[in-house]
Simulated scan of single mutants.
Amino acid sequence: MSNENLKITILFGSYRIERNGLRVIKYLDSHLKERGVSTTIVDAKLEKLPLLERRYSEYAADKNLHSDDKALFERLKNISEIFKASDGFLLVAGEYNFSVQPGLKNLIDYFLPEYAFRPGALAMYSMGAFGASRGITNLRGIMGEVGMSSLPSVHYFPQVHVSLDENGKDVENRYEKQTKKFLDELIWHAKALRGARSEGTPN
């Protein structure tokens, strides 16, 4: 079955100087596009998202926004529209102190209904040997709380600074089998839930 018109949004929340997760994004983005999937990358650092004060829905409901809030509101509105048009999410995440990167958590928290009844897949990376596996437990809980269906498969990228080059190329041909299973699962769930949403969702 064709993947035409299937839309996956990639979420990224690293604010570090050396952002090795960009290697993972380039790698997975290219593989999704090879499968005919439309992708959009939402990078919290590039969006200049400050620490959360109010959710997007609260800004949208405020008819008297201050000038400083209006610029943020427009950025959030654009992200909200991207999320609402998405059939699924791909979270590219590292691990900070056994937990979630604060920038990614902050990005997720700005929104809520946009995630409902859509799958979320996890691609975890680190410079160490464990591929940020210790950060998954908290992240899965967050995904479930906001309404994302967390996929069973996780794509790990240990020693990402060695296994992927700056252009996202798998220099050691390490990931081909894992990537196929991971993206097959994401695309299957995205299609299945898109079809189910078209018939209505629980109130």
Rank of each mutant, 00 (worst) to 15 (best):
L186S: 02
I8N: 07
I187W: 00
G144D: 14
Y175V: 03
E74P: 00
L22Y: 15
N5G: 05
L51I: 14
T201C: 07
H31I: 02
A196Y: 10
A44K: 11
R194N: 03
L151K: 06
V146L: 12
S2D: 12
A93L: 01
F111Q: 01
V24H: 08
Y56E: 01
F89N: 00
L104Q: 05
S198N: 12
G141Q: 13
G141W: 05
P113G: 08
G141Y: 10
L91R: 04
A192L: 05
D109S: 04
S150M: 01
N97Q: 12
K63S: 14
G141D: 06
E185I: 04
G135M: 10
P113V: 02
R55S: 09
R16N: 08
R197A: 13
A116Y: 11
F111T: 01
E4P: 01
E185S: 13
D165E: 10
K105F: 08
K191F: 02
N3D: 08
F111I: 01
Q159N: 10
V146W: 11
V162G: 00
N97M: 04
M148R: 09
E172F: 15
I187H: 01
E74R: 15
P202S: 03
L90E: 14
R75V: 15
L112A: 15
G128R: 12
G36H: 04
K45L: 07
N3P: 13
P119I: 04
A129I: 09
H161R: 13
L65G: 11
G135T: 05
L22W: 11
L76A: 02
F182T: 10
K26M: 05
D43M: 05
L139P: 15
S149K: 10
V37Y: 02
G21F: 09
Y115A: 06
P119C: 00
A93P: 00
R140C: 05
L22C: 03
Y175D: 02
K84L: 15
Y56Q: 06
P113M: 04
G36P: 01
R118N: 01
L164T: 02
G21E: 12
V162I: 15
A93K: 03
A190I: 10
R118D: 04
Y96P: 08
W188G: 09
E199H: 12
Y110I: 05
S198P: 00
T137R: 15
L112V: 13
R19P: 10
V146P: 09
Y110R: 06
E58W: 02
A60T: 05
G147M: 01
R197K: 11
N64I: 12
L49H: 13
A60W: 11
L11C: 01
R197L: 11
N97K: 07
G128V: 14
